[in-house]
């Protein structure tokens, strides 16, 4: 039957081999090892295992690149936690933003040029002369400007007597476009009659009546 010292020593052998056994454990084991062949054999076996495992594999990679990668990870995580952008990523972002601003500026310039050119072609003048062509109803025949003293009743009577009606006016309501009440009916004396009437400043036929 094995003694308690044998089992204790057997269990202590790895820690004797790697040098971490306490002084009291070491003393106990040494006393038993001196008298036990099995334990000495096991000690020798474990010594060989220990020596065999002590060989360096030599696999450690370069420290600095590995450390830099870890710092990048830490930066990224801290940025995510605080809502800020890490320095390296911030530089990349700034470069991207600068490029975007340049592209945007070029686009805006092109758009502005195109818009100006289009305006030059399409934009109508902001003013119009009386002789300028205007959008008039198809049967409009006269442009009529009453004096401010001509009241509505007098205007209605004047138009009625000459079988005319108002088909258009300018924005300020000072110039009227008149047309015959009966479409296509033209009275060659109507201009003279209107010009002779009181309260009329201007009467002129519309040329190229459509």
């Amino acid at each position: 039957m094995q003694s308690p010292q044998h089992r204790q020593t057997w269990d202590l052998i790895p820690w004797l081999v790697n040098g971490t056994a306490s002084a009291s454990d070491r003393a106990l084991a040494e006393a038993h090892l001196a008298a036990c062949t099995d334990c000495r054999d096991e000690y020798a076996f474990q010594f060989r295992v220990h020596a065999g495992l002590g060989v360096e594999a030599g696999v450690a990679g370069e420290v600095q690149p590995a450390f830099d990668r870890l710092l990048e990870r830490i930066d990224a995580e801290q940025a995510a936690e605080t809502g800020t952008v890490p320095a390296a990523r911030q530089r990349r972002l700034l470069r991207g933003l600068a490029a975007a601003v340049v592209v945007q500026a070029i686009g805006l310039a092109a758009l502005a040029t195109w818009s100006i050119e289009r305006h030059r072609v399409d934009e109508a003048p902001a003013y119009r002369t009386l002789s300028a062509p205007e959008a008039t109803p198809a049967d409009a025949s006269l442009r009529f400007v009453p004096s401010p003293e001509l009241n509505v009743g007098q205007l209605q009577r004047l138009l009625g007597e000459n079988r005319l009606h108002v088909v258009g006016t300018n924005d300020s309501g000072t110039i009227y476009t008149l047309a015959p009440v009966v479409p296509g009916h033209s009275d060659p004396d109507v201009v003279a009659r209107l010009r002779a009437a009181a309260g009329v400043l201007l009467v002129e036929p519309i040329s190229n009546t459509r």
Partner: peptide
């Protein structure tokens, strides 16, 4: 699994003295 290790020479410095 490693009987060969146990059957070879003892380590350079033997484990215990009698």
């Amino acid at each position: 699994t490693l009987p060969e290790l146990g059957g070879e020479d003892s380590p350079p410095t033997h484990s215990a003295q009698a």
